[in-house]
Simulated assay, not measured.
Amino acid sequence: MKKFILLFTIVLVAAQIQAQDTTSVKVLKKNIVTVNEEPNKTEVSIMNDKINIQDNNFSDTTTIRVGRRNIEIIEGGSKTYVNMTKAIDSDDNECTWRRYKKKFNGHWSGFEIGVNGFYDTNYSMYDDPTNEFMDLNQSASLEVNLNFVEYNITLVPQRLGIVSGFGLQYNNYKFDNPVTIDKGDDGIIEWLPVDDSNFKKSKLTVSYLTLPIMLEWQIPVNDHSNYFFISGGMVGGLNLGSHTKIKANSSKSKDKGSFNINPFKYSVIGRIGLRDFSVYATYSLSDLFKDNKGPELTPFTIGICLVNF
């Protein structure tokens, strides 16, 4: 229970924004997450570089290293591809992830990918409320989750428990039209047209440090060799940063800023699965943008867990 209480304390006091373009989240003076944004790339290091993410601004490939697994997310013209390989040359002492037997072992830690969307939209604060400039190319608007810490509290051994931990979340909102967004002189989010003669893609990316609180029920199947599980609860998020990215022919541009994103978000979450495979869905109870600083948008995500560790 002490660990469970500690998690809430961490969310309130852990975030520290350092100089220039580096954001660090510390727990007991140790870096849990470090985000370093440079002109040509964005790099994220988690838990002393046990997990490393690199997003090259001049490439359509995001590379993720999780222990001995390498994951590449490649954005094509209209599709996104995910390649997973296993590293050959690795230090097993540093890169092997172990799952310890517990009275109750929940399902949170792992690599997940999902599709983003907006359930409810309201542009009434704009002169033309019919211009829904945040319309998404939904199939290419992906959420990527790296849930790197998991804590479990047993309520009923091998049946019922509380699951929590930490995760790193990337939400990509790929615009369906040749537009991008920026803060206007009045501080309100406005849309800006992009030359559609050479336009290929435009998107908004928002990253969060996440903290779930879920109740999970497990049902043994196949003579107790596997477990079918159902879980639900809440996920809180601390905004770590955001940027827009435009690609036109071979040229690319990236603009970093707050874009009036809410500093905190909270969502309901539900998941269902068998063993290490699961399907999840989240529905946000907070808007993407701050009140009266942009359109009212209610995000949701539907996804799957691809790698469990």
Rank of each mutant, 00 (worst) to 15 (best):
F309Y: 09
L240Q: 14
L240D: 09
T62M: 10
S231D: 07
Y119P: 00
G257V: 00
H224R: 15
C95P: 02
K79V: 00
E43H: 13
W191M: 04
P157L: 02
G232S: 04
S139E: 09
H243L: 03
N262D: 10
D91T: 03
V149E: 14
D127S: 13
F4C: 05
L240K: 15
G233D: 09
G117Q: 11
K2V: 00
F264V: 09
N31Y: 05
N105M: 02
S286R: 04
V144F: 12
D127H: 05
R98M: 03
Y126V: 00
N40M: 01
N122A: 01
V221L: 09
K293H: 07
Q138W: 08
V149Q: 15
I10C: 08
D49W: 08
V35W: 13
G77Q: 15
L297D: 12
I272P: 02
F133C: 02
E216Y: 01
Y280A: 06
K203D: 02
S253F: 02
S225G: 05
P263V: 01
N131Q: 04
L142F: 09
G161S: 11
D186Y: 10
G270C: 03
T282Y: 06
S24K: 14
L211S: 12
L6N: 11
D223H: 14
I51E: 11
Y81Q: 12
S24G: 04
K86A: 05
N52Y: 14
L306Y: 08
Y123I: 01
T301Q: 13
F229D: 04
G110H: 07
Q138I: 05
G184R: 04
N83Q: 08
N56M: 05
D120V: 02
S164G: 14
G110A: 07
N292M: 02
E37Q: 14
L209W: 15
F133N: 09
S225M: 09
K254T: 06
N52R: 15
I10N: 13
C305E: 09
T96Q: 12
K256Q: 10
P39G: 04
N137E: 12
C305N: 14
L142Q: 14
I230C: 03
K252V: 05
Y100A: 08
T205A: 11
K29C: 01
F8P: 01
R275V: 00
Q16E: 06
F228S: 06
D196M: 01
Q16C: 05
V44I: 15
W97Y: 15
